[in-house]
Amino acid sequence: MALAEMNTTLAENARGPGAGEFAPSRKRRRSVFFTVLRHSGALVGLMVLGAIIAMAATAPLIRPGDPLALAGTPLLWPGQDLAHPLGTDNMGRDVLAGIMHGARVSLLVGVAATALGVLGGVSVGAVAGYFGGRIDNLIVRFIEIFQTIPGFVLLVVLVAVIQPSIWTVIIGIALTSWDTIARLTRAEFRTLRQQDYVSAARSVGYGDAHIILREIIPNALPPLVVTATIMVASAILSESALAFLGLGDPNSVSWGAMIGTGREYIRTHWYLTAIPGGFIVATVFALNLIGDALNDALSPHLART
C-alpha cells in the first residue's frame, strides 16, 4: 500500500464512529434542521426575517427611485393618503420607501460586519487556541485590552474620525465585535485540540493548516453559528444607533437615521419615530429568536432547562 493511500485510509478511520464528534452525519444535520423548525419561536423568527429580506429585495421594484427624494405632501399620517401607506416625513419623503430601502442597509451592514468580524475573530482565536504558549498569552492580553475599551464608544470615535460611510460603519462594527468570537474560538480550540481525532490526524502527518481548517473548525461550528446570529442582531442595533447619532452614511437611507429625523417631530408626529423603530425591533427580535433556537438545537447540553 502506498504511503499516500494509507494516510487517507487512516484519516477516513479517524472520521468514523467512535472517533469523537467529527463530521456530523447527514442524519444528525437533518435533525438539527427539524429541531429548529419545531421550535415555534424559530418559525416566527424565520418568517419575520424572511419578510424583511423580501422587503429589501423588492425595494427597487415597489418603491423605485431615490428614497431620499421628495415624494409628496410633507407630514402625512399613515393611511391618510393611499399613495403613501406609511405616511411621509417633514421633507415629504415616503416613509415606506425609506423602510424598504433601509432594510437593505440594515441587512447589508449586519451581515457584512458579522462576516468580517467572524473572519477576524476566528483566525485570531484559532491561532491562540491551537498553538497556545507565548502567542496565546499575547493574543489573550490583546483581547482583554479590547474588552476594556467600551466598544460603542470606540465605534463612535472611529466612525466620527474616519468620516461616516457604509464601509467605515461596517469595518468599525467588525473591529469592535471580533473579540467575542475570538474568545469563543480560542476556548473551543483549546478543548478540541486535545481530542483523539486531532491526535490521529496529526499522527498521519497532516499539517497545522489542515487540522485547523478541516478537523477542528467543523467541530467548533455550532457555538460559532449561534454567536454569529446574535452578532448580526447586535450589528444592526449598532448601525441604527450610529445613524441615529448622525454617524450613518449620509447618502443612504437608514432606519436609525429616520428615527433621528423623526425625533424632531416627536411631540406631533410620533409615527415617524415609531415605524422605523418597530422594524428594527422586529428584525433584531427575529434574529435573536433564531439564535436561541439554534442554541437549543445545536448544543443540547446547554439547552435551557
Partner: peptide, 22 residues
C-alpha cells in the same frame, strides 16, 4: 425579556417620552 433585549435603547427612550411625557 427577548423583546427587551432586541429593542434599540434610543428608540425605547423616545417611545417612553411619547407615552409618559407627551
Amino acid at each position: 425579556s427577548l423583546v427587551f433585549y432586541s429593542v434599540p435603547t434610543f428608540w425605547i427612550g423616545l417611545m417612553l417620552i411619547v407615552l409618559f411625557s407627551v
